[in-house]
């Protein structure tokens, strides 16, 4: 799954650690999601999207086939 988490975080001037704290997850989790190495659970995806005031599909999208 692809995502624009790094772009959203950069737009708001947030560090990975600050975003991790805000989401209640580890910094490594944010790093792994941004690099596309870890697909978050649905509850966590909702929390991420909600944190930026967006819908899940605005943050995450499936890999092109």
């Amino acid at each position: 799954m692809q995502n624009v988490l790094a772009d959203l975080r950069a737009e708001r001037g947030l560090s990975q650690a600050a975003l991790a704290d805000a989401l209640g997850v580890s910094r490594q989790t944010v790093i792994s999601i941004e690099r596309g190495r870890f697909d978050p659970s649905l509850p966590l995806a909702f929390r991420i999207a909600g944190h930026f005031g967006l819908r899940i599909e605005d943050v995450f999208r499936p890999d092109p086939e």
């Binding site: 989790t29 999601i33 978050p40």
Partner: peptide
């Protein structure tokens, strides 16, 4: 869900 996230059950380390 909130409790699970607070308990780090959705972290990459847990996976």
């Amino acid at each position: 869900t909130d409790r699970e996230i607070a308990a780090h059950q959705h972290d990459v380390e847990t996976s």
